[in-house]
Nucleic acid binder design. Sequence first.
RNA 1: UGGGGUGUCGCCAAGCGGUAAGGCACGGGACUUUGACUCCCGCACGCGUAGGUUCAAAUCCUGCCACCCCAG
Length: 379
Amino acid sequence: MPMTTSDEATLKYDHLKQSSVIIGMSGGVDSSVASLLLKQQGFTVVGLSLVTHDRGMEAAADARAVCRRLGQELIVVDMRDSFQESIVHDFVDAWLAGLTPNPCVLCNPTVKFKTLIDTADRFGFRHIATGHYASVRRHPDSSRLALAKTDSGQKDQTYFLYRLQQEQLARIIFPLDGMSKPEVRRLAAEYGLEGEQGTALAEKPDSQDICFIPDQDYLGLLREEIVRRGLDDARKHLEPGPIVDVHGQIIGTHKGLLAYTIGQRKGFDVKTTERLFVIARHFSTNTLVVGPFEHVLKQTIQVKSVVYSGIGNFDEAQPVTARVRSSAQPAACRVFNNRDKSLTVRFDQPVASPAPGQSCVFYDRGLILAGGIITESAD
RNA sequence: UGGGGUGUCGCCAAGCGGUAAGGCACGGGACUUUGACUCCCGCACGCGUAGGUUCAAAUCCUGCCACCCCAG
């Protein structure tokens, strides 16, 4: 009988754990190519498709086709019910509370990455992966983990991932780190990756908009949910009311306050000669206030529910940069700590329409330091 | 029914005899794993109406209509 120490056995077992990975697969080109890259690097890859809404099954079918092609397993997790109860429910509540929620930001840590890690734990795998364009680095000073923009600098999805915790970041592999979208599409074409119907994934358009809302019609979803949940008080927020300018003059009729968010420019047929933006929604009087662009510029915002990544806390008046929406360039600002753990952020130059409910994410040279939810803004 | 003024795209508005600027709104694209923003493209064979002058009129002339103002 060969002598095997328990240490050696653990070592072999560890090797298996280290070389296996659960990857989230959406059926799109990014996660498919990410999967391909992991396989090429010698990982044992198991795919995981999350079905969060009724139309998610076709996406899972495309993921299945890719897995078949790559010779890997695919697990499909149907979590429509729990997704409805958590993310969709909160999304609706936030809108009804006058906020402008960003469901993706919450879904990533609490649903998407959580399920990936839970599944990895069940398999005894150390790593999880996704097809995001992002990377995980260590902050040079704190040695904490932080998301970072990828070197390619082309596509950057870090904003949506800022709420991932240290334990989660420690287990993530982003195979697309450093790649550009065209490179990814080229690889997909080169390896002939295709979906269930034989459509080339290289040609598949990027996913966009909120995954659980068909046709970008979030208002339609709100309407349905208000009826389904019997939220009679909220019905009035779907009814037309006056649009007033900054002087209080009625200049038109809006189509329900829930159809608008701060900074919005379109969607109100109003007699005007200049560009007007939504500067406030008054739910008590069902009034929409609009005005010229300068009224939408804000220099100070309050941020709560902060998740710290690259740093454990801010120095007083620490100069950093922050983005108030995913597509914005980070803007210079200073951060002040409040007693209740919230932050006051003062931008060097005013930023356009930061909306309560949206996220403010702090960056330092491409590294995410922290991020939180905007609660209010001031001039 | 005396005098004066104005009538150009849904809204505002250039044009002042040479063959309809522009802005807002709207529609369509691009961008985008949130709401938005932004960008690009489109948008009056016709200028209250009916005639007239002219090679040529939204632009000049006349009638009519509508609205506004001032007087009664």
